[in-house]
Amino acid sequence: MAKQYGLLIKWALDRNNLIKTPDTAERGEHYRCPLCKESVIFRKGKIRVPHFAHKKNVQCTLERIRKIVAQYKMVEVFSDWKNSTGEKPQFLRRCGICQKWSFQNLSDKVDAIDSDFPLSDGASADLVLKSKDIPVALIFIDFNPNPSKLKNLPINLPYIVVDPNEIVKNPYIWQPINDHFNKNICTSCIKTKSILAKQTYGIELKKNNFQFRTIRCWNCNHTILVFLWPIRQKEGLAASQNCISRPSTLVEKYSDFTGSSYLANTCPHCHSVQIEHYQQEPREFNF
C-alpha cells in the first residue's frame, strides 16, 4: 500500500471542487487529485507531515499538479471577487517608464474567467478573461516560459505568463514573468506625466477628458504623449480647432490623398509627425 500511494501532494479537491490543503482538510472527507481527478487519501499523523497520498501514475507529477492548483486558485479568487465574498485580485507589473513594480487593478468590466481557452493550432491558454462573453486577455501559467514557443502561438489577444509557484503562495497577486499587456504606468510617473503635459503641451490632464498614451518618437527616441482627437468622436475638426485646451503638439495637416485637413500628433522635441499614432483608438481595458 505504501508503494502504491508513493506520491505525496499538498493539495486536493473537495466535494465542491475547492482546493484544500492538509491544514484545511478534515478526516473522513472525500478528496481528489486536482489534475487526474482520482481519489487521494488524507493522512495526518504524529510522525509524518500531513499530506494527501496519491497513487503513482505517469500523468501526475508535483510540478503539473502545482500548475493546475494555480489555475484553480486564480479562478476561485476571481469568482469570490465577483460574488463579493473575497478581495479583488491585482496585477503586479513593472511601470513602462521607470521600470519599478506597481500594482494595477483588474478592470471591473472583466466579468468572467474561464479555463483552457483553445487557440487555433490545437494549443490552449490556461485562462481567459472575458467581458460580456468576449475574450479580452489570456493568461498562461508556466514555470519557465519559452519565448519562442509563445511567439509562434496564434495569439491575437494581450497576454501574460505567471509563475504557478507565486500564484500558489498568494493567488491575489498576479505578477507576470512575461508581460504582453498594454504598458502599465505607475502613479508616480502619471504625476510626472501630468507635469510634463502642462509644461510641454500646455494642457492639464486632470481637467480634461484627454485620451492619450505614451510612445517613443520614431525620429529622436524621446518619450512623448500622443492624443486621440477630437476628445469625443462626434466632434469635428472645426470644434477641435476652436478648443483652447487642445495640446500644442496637435498640428493641422493637409492630405492630398483625401483632399481634407486633419490633426496630427507631432513630437515636441524634433517636431516630426507621429503619423502612425494620431488616429489610434485607446484600449478599453488596462491590458
Results as ranks from 00 to 15, higher is better:
residue 35 L to H: 08
residue 79 S to N: 14
residue 86 G to K: 09
residue 70 A to Y: 04
residue 102 S to R: 01
residue 93 R to Y: 00
residue 92 L to I: 12
residue 42 F to Y: 15
residue 38 E to S: 14
residue 40 V to P: 03
residue 58 V to H: 10
residue 92 L to C: 06
residue 33 C to F: 03
residue 35 L to K: 09
residue 43 R to I: 12
residue 92 L to N: 09
residue 67 K to F: 02
residue 51 H to A: 12
residue 38 E to Q: 14
residue 100 K to R: 15
residue 50 P to L: 10
residue 36 C to L: 02
residue 43 R to T: 10
residue 72 Y to N: 04
residue 56 K to G: 14
residue 59 Q to W: 03
residue 60 C to N: 09
residue 50 P to E: 05
residue 69 V to F: 03
residue 76 E to H: 14
residue 68 I to H: 02
residue 103 F to Y: 13
residue 59 Q to N: 11
residue 85 T to M: 10
residue 71 Q to H: 11
residue 92 L to D: 07
residue 52 F to A: 09
residue 80 D to N: 11
residue 69 V to E: 04
residue 98 C to N: 04
residue 90 Q to W: 08
residue 84 S to P: 01
residue 62 L to D: 13
residue 54 H to L: 05
residue 56 K to T: 15
residue 41 I to P: 04
residue 62 L to W: 09
residue 57 N to P: 04
residue 64 R to F: 11
residue 36 C to D: 07
residue 56 K to F: 14
residue 85 T to K: 11
residue 81 W to E: 10
residue 58 V to I: 13
residue 80 D to K: 15
residue 49 V to T: 07
residue 88 K to Q: 13
residue 52 F to N: 07
residue 91 F to I: 09
residue 39 S to N: 10
residue 72 Y to I: 00
residue 46 K to M: 10
residue 71 Q to F: 01
residue 101 W to I: 03
residue 103 F to D: 06
residue 79 S to P: 01
residue 74 M to E: 12
residue 35 L to Q: 10
residue 57 N to D: 15
residue 68 I to S: 06
residue 65 I to S: 12
residue 61 T to N: 04
residue 37 K to G: 00
residue 49 V to N: 00
residue 88 K to A: 15
residue 84 S to M: 09
residue 36 C to K: 01
residue 43 R to W: 12
residue 84 S to R: 15
residue 98 C to H: 05
residue 101 W to G: 00
residue 37 K to C: 02
residue 37 K to E: 10
residue 82 K to N: 06
residue 97 I to C: 05
residue 71 Q to L: 13
residue 92 L to M: 14
residue 40 V to G: 08
residue 55 K to E: 14
residue 44 K to I: 04
residue 67 K to M: 06
residue 94 R to D: 03
residue 73 K to Y: 08
residue 72 Y to C: 01
residue 103 F to A: 08
residue 81 W to Y: 15
residue 67 K to H: 15
residue 37 K to L: 03
residue 56 K to E: 13
residue 65 I to A: 13
residue 87 E to F: 05
residue 57 N to E: 08
residue 46 K to N: 08
residue 39 S to G: 02
residue 96 G to V: 01
residue 89 P to W: 05
residue 96 G to C: 06
residue 73 K to P: 02
residue 48 R to Y: 06
residue 74 M to C: 14
residue 73 K to I: 08
residue 67 K to C: 05
residue 96 G to P: 01
residue 78 F to E: 00
residue 100 K to S: 13
residue 70 A to V: 10
residue 96 G to H: 03
residue 65 I to L: 13
residue 54 H to E: 01
residue 48 R to G: 01
residue 47 I to C: 00
residue 46 K to P: 00
residue 62 L to G: 14
residue 34 P to H: 02
residue 66 R to E: 15
residue 47 I to K: 05
residue 89 P to R: 09
residue 57 N to A: 08
residue 83 N to E: 08
residue 42 F to C: 13
residue 49 V to A: 03
residue 55 K to W: 01
residue 103 F to G: 00
residue 59 Q to R: 15
residue 66 R to C: 10
residue 71 Q to P: 08
residue 63 E to D: 13
residue 103 F to P: 01
residue 77 V to W: 03
residue 94 R to V: 06
residue 95 C to Q: 00
residue 36 C to S: 05
residue 74 M to P: 12
residue 100 K to V: 14
residue 73 K to H: 07
residue 49 V to S: 11
residue 35 L to E: 08
residue 33 C to D: 02
residue 39 S to E: 13
